[in-house]
Amino acid sequence: MGEIFANYDIVGAVWKTIQLAVLSAIGATVIGTIVAVLRVSPVPVLRGIGTTFVNTFRNTPLTVLMIMSVLGFSFLLGLQIREDFADNAFWWAVIMLSLYHAAFVCEALRSGINTVPAGQAEAARSIGLTFKQSLLEVILPQSFRGAIAPLVSTYIALIKNTTVAAVIGVAESAGILATITENEGGSLPLFLVFALIFVVLTLPLGVLGTNLSRKLAVKR
């Protein structure tokens, strides 16, 4: 086992996983919030765009999105994000992870928005807040709190789903695990080590989520 750790950059691979996870989580949160706002907006066209986005990305397998990005967009259409092959794959992975999970973030937020009674929005409008102000000051702050539990589940799924980036050659945890297995043969302890790494990454998030939703719960 020590030999494997010496010969392969396992720490670097885990670091890649963390980078993928953090960047994609930021991307998914930003895009997902925008799409959620579209889906609750009073304009039918915007709602349609939001719904189409969610239906498209929620119902397409992540593996298909990944392969489509590099093989389809990069190789066939020439859409290179970076010159370097590995960098290009990494950033495509971030984009696809962001888009895919944005659909789930959107739906988690929307379920949060549904926890806010209609009277809150009416009161916000009746004191003269615009649609945007009502969202930012009254609806979204309460929605985020109601959405913590489903959001945490989405982020945990995202962390584990970063492993799909291995299919386009991103040298993250699952990628290096495949490489080691190929070169050195399968090893049960090694699989366990990698499983454990993901537990270490995801478990605290779950605990944090439970504590946060308890602490920040909006009392009615």
Partner: peptide, 11 residues
């Protein structure tokens, strides 16, 4: 506007 269910901003 004053509502039946008060509708104070809960947060």
């Amino acid at each position: 506007m004053v509502f039946q269910s008060f509708n104070l901003f809960a947060h």
